[in-house]
Design a protein around this nucleic acid. Structure first.
Lengths: 343, 343
DNA sequence: TTGAAAGCGCTAACAC
DNA sequence: GTGTTAGCGCTTTCAA
């Protein structure tokens, strides 16, 4: 297992050529100005095959200072959204032979900083980061961002426009959804909104409010309830609304995401409150497992694929130091109407 | 963006020490035999902090020939099972400061081979591979496996015992499930079994058969139907059974996985055939999204976490060249009984 | 306790 | 067309 790998020197010796020549055929330098005779090329190539030569990226990275690797940092790959992000970014990266080094922050900014440092140690060509909650690392990230292409994804820092970010248009999404409900006459909406620590929650609350304002509906009878992002939150909060009797004063409940919406549905089911007859329900995210779920859920599609592509493209542009038009990229969302809102 | 990174030489100059000394404090060589004076250590350490030195793994890898990275190759991270695998392996790896380079094979053995080569290029310390379908790469993998710690996960090659593999006990799982159905009096079972190309399908078919044999029930009235692994397969096949009227001669349908089972359920719903009154249904995998699904589904839990841990442990042992007891590691499964089989 | 120097495997500038 | 050689940044003998 302590096997010595075959190096270009080995294959240089074998062919009687110099390591420079070997390196040239390896890098197809002939396609790039430097001519190589067909003979030596073939000779070298066959030696490579024969000896089973596999290049050493560490050496290449060291001398070229680029690694053909991208660091992807997400809070947690078990979350569908990040799972998809990871998938689509990988797919993009493969096209250009970039590899992905996957890191988890677990929503912990200390871990996040550590992982970033590790990625820099590995001299990745860029970092795509779905920032952990809060803004603790913002200063640190501002430093980093001067050294290495960094693109923020999913969440961003409204307080700083030093970063490039690709996020879904959460204001718009929640605005569309809320407007849809209001137009249906459901004016008294409960919005279970997540913590207010993330830009995501903040924006969705903004969209929520905007819809009311634009339609000139008073928000007095609506209610925004802070929560976490789990199914249980939806369940517990709704249960509380039901048992307190408060639920009677509402026409609709919206979850900050589809899981929370599921929790809401569970609670309503438990108390045999019919959806959408008695109350309308909506989620957010258009989770791809939704089709397996019980109640067809009205939700907002974030277009994770487009987000991923955008982020990757920005990374590429940063590498090539192409101009990038704006710092904040917003991917359009779309409202998905289903039975839970009577559609 | 073309920033020159700080190197140990910079910090050597700054402290008036040699690069060897700097390297020593970096590697805590004092904890390891080589003594370093407290003074120089502190001096160096503060210079490191001051200059914002970040080590270069490429250089380290080149000189040490190990990269502290593990290659993980899976068919596709969008599949829940591989998603979980990735998560749990990452979590293990983090404990020892290994990083994960994530590769997709998309069930394509050519891609798989290319990815392996890439990982070796990167001098990863080991590869954890969920092999793509078929056995096309088996010879290639046998070569690889002599050069680098390789552990197979999820699927294995029954025809070769040169590999270390960690799989779930699929024979046992399907055996338990089938036995459960048979004991309930459901003797006429349709098993929608996936392709027979994977060890997974083969074993589950074996488990299926074994249950019949052991209970002394004739398999004559049962039926194994090949398929792919998607929800649609379950749906189409079941629909066919229903429209042809064939369904009446069966007591139960089992899907090769939970998604196929969902397809089955969809088809039955569509034709208003009641589960479990008219027919029993079971899946396989205990998908973590199951709790969100409509019909509580009887299934088999594969314990992905244990599989992941096992695989990682084997990798570690290979690194340390500890003895490894056996080549084929089987993680026990458990039957999860739910309403779809009348439990 | 510390330093000098020889690699690790590869790229790229320069020379022929 | 091809070879020589100086790095890239770090680890690790070997000496002192």
């Amino acid at each position: 297992m302590k096997k010595r790998y075959v190096t270009i020197e080995d294959i240089a010796k074998k062919t009687g050529k110099s390591i420079a020549t070997v390196s040239r055929v390896l890098n197809r330098s002939d396609k790039n100005g430097v001519p190589i005779s067909i003979k030596t090329k073939d000779h070298v190539l066959s030696a490579i095959k024969e000896l089973g030569y596999i290049p050493n990226y560490a050496a290449r990275t060291l001398s070229q200072r680029n690694s053909m690797a991208i660091g992807l940092i997400i809070p947690d790959i078990m979350q569908v959204y990040f799972n998809e992000l990871c998938y689509f970014i990988s797919k993009q990266a493969e096209k250009n032979n970039y590899n992905i080094i996957l890191s988890h922050s677990y929503e912990n900014s200390t871990v996040e900083a550590r992982e970033i440092e590790m990625l820099i140690s590995r001299r990745v060509d860029g970092i795509i980061l779905a920032p952990s909650m809060g803004e603790k690392n913002i200063e640190y990230l501002e430093t980093i961002q001067k050294q290495i292409p960094l693109v923020l994804i999913d969440r961003y820092f409204p307080s700083s426009d030093n970063f490039y970010s690709v996020t879904s248009n959460d204001i718009e999404g929640m605005y569309l959804l809320t407007k849809h409900l209001l137009k249906k006459g459901a004016h008294r909406i409960v919005f279970i909104s997540g913590t207010s620590e993330t830009s995501v929650s903040k924006e969705r609350i903004e969209g929520f409010t905007r819809a009311y304002n634009e339609l000139g509906v008073s928000m007095e009878k609506s209610k925004i309830i802070r929560s976490s992002y789990f199914q249980e939150d939806g369940f517990e909060i709704t249960k509380e609304l039901i048992t307190s009797g408060e639920i009677k004063s509402f026409d609709a409940i919206v979850g900050i995401n589809d899981y929370v919406a599921l929790g809401i549905i569970d609670a309503l089911d438990k108390y045999k409150i019919k959806i959408p007859d008695k109350i309308l329900i909506a989620g957010y995210g258009n989770n791809r497992y939704l089709k397996y779920f019980r109640t067809p859920l009205t939700t907002v599609d974030q277009n994770v694929e487009a987000i991923s592509k955008n982020a990757y493209d920005i990374f590429l542009k940063m590498k090539k130091s192409d101009k990038i038009v704006n710092h904040f990229h917003r991917v359009p969302v779309s409202l998905v109407k289903r039975a839970s809102t009577g559609d």
